[in-house]
Design a protein around this nucleic acid. Structure first.
Lengths: 412, 412
DNA sequence: CACGGTTTGGAAGACAGGTGCACAAAACCC
DNA sequence: GGGTTTTGTGCACCTGTCTTCCAAACCGTG
């Protein structure tokens, strides 16, 4: 797996090596969980001596802890187990959903320490109102005295976010345009910790890649059906944001120029064929019925109601058409379907595969793997935590304080 | 710009630093041309001392040369000019075109040292026959005694190439399937140098990014119209190959499910709306007329013939529809149009922009930049050279011999 | 329960490679 | 020709990993 953040300068100095090695150890533990020292030696290719010094520094810095590993019956001196101190190094993850707000505290290593959510009226709300609600929600998990305890804050939002993660350029469902969400949120939370904002589908993709259905892969296409259709692309472990943050807006890929007008101003967008409204239309229900109607269609399909089953088949067919285009452009290893598509997966499965087989160029060993999401509704929240943890994981040396003493020096 | 090749092990050792710094210097000179030593100091952020030692090693290794820079009127001791020794470090670039074969010798820094091509009958030809012709073509530029002089060989081919660049999985125009081109070519050229094969559109993209219309950018979408429609995607300086090498096959993106059958077996592929045959159909000419008919349509449009002009407008419209989808998925900084689209650019320009404006999500400052290719028919050949040079540029230390003496040691 | 075998942690010195500083060299300007 | 500026050069120093040797801790066996 490749670091998300690139080195700042192209010239490397000696210190770069140590920083890279500290990062390699922390990333390994973050992604694969606690390991023995000697496992880390094997994985990084470094010597025991080097690993010892690096881990010593990270333990002294309060980032990792070492403990006696469980005896495993193997001969030889047992190697201590190294684990991230999730309760000391953690982030606050937030998500602005269509009809709720969610928050979680997530520690290094991915452990969810606390989680909560509140309902939100499904109508346009100002940045100020939502930010205030998020602050209130946060207060239920984090007493005011610990406002600065999370090392960073990550936010998932259904909208286009500028590449640097500060400003929400466009969020149709919320009616936002050029909203300085990061700044407002920092003020409302009364924290000086950095706030990182990103698109919910991009973060869902990251979450499924690291902790969900695509664990182990490093290329992924994530397509999630909600009110609209969002997409997230990960290439070589890096989320693809695009120049302006628009990448992955697969819902507005034209698939049917003779089709219906889309609210984005274009015609025949994929979203108009596979979005929530398209499903309700196909099922002969009121298009604006919202999630309740969708649930009813799902229930009907589960009961075998012909119109519902047919509606999902048609949805699956259009899903396959769009995915075929994306496969031919991106050739990903895994496609993960989230939101509505995950819940409806058993009903769209066959039509989707058939269409994909017809239209996608087949690789040497058949098609890409298509799988429903594993993390469900929490995917973007988990992704927001990963986003917020990323700068730390990519350079833990920066968090070791002005000059953390080496373990050896501290011991003397 | 980011190295194309990733480090092998996640643990960094001290030696890594020197290798990375040698690579940084060579890459800088390769991409931006000859520079003074002090410019390199400024760009890499390394100290004069470090740069001196590194350049000394590269000069001693025969990779770079230092010479007195031209006096520029600035005060202070003049800094020597460092340039790549293009005549000592060069590659052989080959391209298998629809109706010709092309070859070039390209030096480090991108200088074309020699170039030639021969015609090829437009019919299916075996790997053996083409490989033999390529060897013959090569012999006209490179005497047998210098067979091993190029440090590597790069080949551009219109087909899907396995990610590792050894095997052509599928080349419809040539009738190949799982063709071991790299191995056969090495045998025919009687060389032990490595042979790298890649898709011509991917290489065209790389070439336009580094030496053509997208110089300076590091994200690019390249779409080229030939018999079929090929595409190349570059993200953060890295060509996107996809898991199996299929990435960038934009020609087979479905854009019109109610459209025509495509030779790939699917229906309504972009290629069926914007390929050579589509143009000829729109212009009311025989679909199988080939390049000569295409030239006639271009000439007619230049004369203002209504049917030809209308044909290009319709082509531009469909080009815009597909590009809008790609923009919404990839959000690239630059789109470069090659082949037919570059030649027809003045006639498709307006319709394309109009359609793109209608269907693409607009970034903060309007749309992406769309530009015709600069390198013309040579783009894939230039890209093949870049491909072949890449391993060298990414790690020149490996070419410095078992143990090249340091300049200081050599001087003593 | 003592013993050897095995695996791992620990400490000192070697080696690699970039930094910083003082000084010399080579240009320009007046 | 002297002063200024910029850059190359040599040397001591710092950071950081590798190598080597030894000690510690666990297993199995007699």
């Amino acid at each position: 797996m490749v670091p998300l953040l690139l080195p700042e300068s192209i010239g490397q100095r000696s210190g770069t090596v140590r920083r890279a090695n500290l990062a390699a150890i922390v990333r390994e533990l973050h992604l694969r969980g606690p390991q023995s020292r000697s496992e880390l030696v094997a994985r990084t290719g470094l010597t025991r001596t080097a690993i010892r010094a690096l881990i010593g520094e990270l333990v002294a810095g309060g980032i990792l802890a070492e403990e006696r590993g469980a005896p495993d019956g193997a001969p030889g001196r047992p190697s201590p187990l190294v684990r991230p101190r999730a309760h000391d190094v953690f982030v606050l993850a937030l998500e602005i959903r269509v009809d709720s707000l969610a928050a979680a505290l997530v520690g290094l290593g991915g452990e969810i320490l606390a989680q909560s959510s509140i309902a939100r009226p499904r109508e346009h709300l100002s940045v100020e109102a939502i930010v205030a609600d998020l602050a209130e929600l946060t207060a239920t998990m984090l007493p005011p005295s610990e406002r600065e305890a999370p090392i960073a804050i990550g936010v998932a939002v259904a909208g286009v976010v500028r590449r640097d993660g500060g400003i929400v350029l466009m969020a149709p469902n919320l009616g936002w345009r050029d909203a300085p969400l990061a700044q407002r949120l920092a003020a409302a939370l009364a924290t000086h910790r950095p706030v990182f904002v990103a698109n919910e589908a991009d973060l869902g993709a990251l979450a499924e890649l690291r902790r969900g259905a695509a664990r182990g892969a490093d290329d992924l296409l994530f397509v999630s059906g909600e009110v609209g259709v969002g997409g997230g692309i990960v290439i070589d472990g890096q989320p693809l944001t695009g120049v302006a943050g628009f990448a992955g807006e697969v819902g507005h890929m034209p698939v049917n120029p003779a089709g219906r007008p889309c609210h984005c101003g274009s015609t025949g967008c994929w979203e108009t064929e596979i979005g929530e409204q398209a499903l309700l239309r196909l099922a002969g229900r009121p298009e604006d019925g919202g999630p309740d109607e969708v649930d009813r269609v799902l229930a009907a399909a589960a009961d075998g109601a012909p119109q519902a089953v047919a509606a999902f088949e048609e949805l699956g067919r259009w899903l396959g058409i769009g995915l075929a285009g994306l496969v031919n452009v991106l050739n990903p290893r895994v496609i993960v379907l989230g939101g509505l598509f995950a819940r409806a997966y058993p009903f769209i499965d066959r039509a989707l595969d058939r269409q994909l087989g017809r239209m996608a160029l087949t690789g040497p060993r058949g098609l890409v793997r298509v799988a429903p999401a594993e993390l469900g509704i929490d995917a973007p929240l988990v992704g927001a935590a990963e986003l917020a943890l990323e700068p730390f994981v990519a350079d833990p040396a920066g968090w070791l304080g002005p000059r953390a003493q080496l373990a050896t020096a501290a011991g003397a």
